[in-house]
Design a protein around this nucleic acid. Structure first.
Lengths: 149, 149
DNA sequence: GATAATTAGTTGAATCTGCAACTACTTCTT
DNA sequence: AAGAAGTAGTTGCAGATTCAACTAATTATC
């Protein structure tokens, strides 16, 4: 019996990894097909648009996105070139910098949101009933809390 | 009510993405700390060691790993330099190539397996009971099947 | 059986990522 | 208040990833 249990969680782990990969690929494809930037850009735009004054310190953005700081620096570089965000200096801490949403960034955020949310429903949410959503949420929350200790 | 449901699956989607990222990071760290190569290398080694004659065609390996072919070419390049796999020509299709496990590759597979499986238990499996494993498996299988249509 | 269309694998160029080192500033310690 | 320690952000560099283009072999079509 222990053997079967072992097998089943290993299979689940594989499923978890492959499902993630498949879903991310599908969403990226939908975005690309709509002529929109990649998922990571949406995460930045969404995080900023949910923030007070539509701006966040670089390190806050990096940690909410679970991204390396250096990675974020260059991501913001690219998005700044594209005119979707801009850097603003921080008065209270002169080391710091904000990334702030531009107007073009807000427009892009909304464009991307509609494609993204549609994709999440199509590939993910549509296949889960209420009970499953609850059960999955509980399980993943528990895992995440423990993993971060 | 529709609003709450909407919120809950969106939260679940975020949780899914962040949990994936946290777990992969944690596992990569454990591997690195043990002086072992990254996760992708383990996937190759494991796939080969589960295959008849410990070898697979490049395109088979790429598709089981959900990896771009060009990406796999270079991954195998690196692993070949490290002596863990070697390429073998294919008799029945002269375009084709096999990636095959070397003896050093088998040894490495076992070393990595023990660290990897320990990490999966610690960060993932330990926090799920039997019912949850079953429920999650069912849900993810359904999602994956639908996504691939 | 000749030619077109596919498929297998690799390569070049451009982009993206992660680690470590670096500068500049802030906070802690005494 | 001076110096140590820590934090914010960027940069250099090496490795990883993707896209498109390419070669070579196979399969389909007529």
């Amino acid at each position: 019996m222990a053997l079967n249990l072992e097998k089943s969680y290993k299979a689940l782990w594989r499923l978890f990894m492959t499902t993630h990969s498949i879903l991310v690929n599908a969403i990226e494809q939908d975005l690309a097909q709509a002529g929109l930037p990649p998922l990571a850009w949406y995460d930045v735009l969404a995080a900023l648009s949910e923030s007070p004054e539509h701006k966040l310190r670089m390190h806050e953005l990096a940690s909410t996105m679970l991204l390396d700081r250096s990675n974020l620096t260059r991501l913001v570089d690219r998005m700044e070139v594209a005119g979707l965000v801009c850097r603003k200096s921080c008065v209270s801490d002169r080391r710091g910098a904000f990334a702030a949403l531009t107007e073009a960034g807000q427009v892009m955020q909304q464009k991307m949101q509609s494609v993204y949310e549609q994709a999440v429903v199509t590939y993910f949410a549509r296949h889960l009933n209420d009970a499953e959503v609850q059960a999955l949420t509980k399980a993943l929350e528990r895992i995440q809390v423990e993993a971060q200790i």
